[in-house]
């Protein structure tokens, strides 16, 4: 792994993005806001894992990213169902 300026810029921006999403997760103020923050964070994390595949030069991380995306999507749907209650 050898990081150039571009890699550092991308990592800094993605890190700042996750920090902002975490800030929204921290301050809330209510649970819907926190769920939205988690959703955003999950997609940013997926993008980050894909970028890690490029940094570590290993396509194995792409499978990790895909699986992470699937799990995050299922989690969001489950949370939405839980908030919505028993309506169809």
């Amino acid at each position: 792994m050898n990081m150039g300026t571009v890699d550092l810029i991308v990592l800094a921006l993605l890190g700042a993005a996750s920090a902002l999403a975490l800030l929204r997760l921290w301050i809330g103020p209510r649970s819907p806001d926190r769920i939205v923050a988690t959703d955003t964070l999950a997609v940013i994390a997926t993008a980050m894992i894909v970028f890690l595949a490029l940094l570590f030069d290993s396509p194995l991380y792409l499978d990790v990213a895909l699986l992470y995306g699937v799990l995050a999507f299922v989690g969001v749907i489950a949370l939405a169902r839980a908030i919505e209650g028993n309506r169809t």
Binding site: L13, A16, A17, L20, R24, R30, A37, T40, I44
Partner: peptide, 25 residues
């Protein structure tokens, strides 16, 4: 790569700045 990271950052910034949950989504 930089453009993508920049848009991710702007999206997260929007999640923090917008006033209600629909606008944040």
């Amino acid at each position: 790569l930089i453009l993508g990271a920049l848009f991710c950052f702007l999206g997260a910034l929007g999640v923090v700045r917008m006033p209600d949950v629909y606008n944040r989504i």
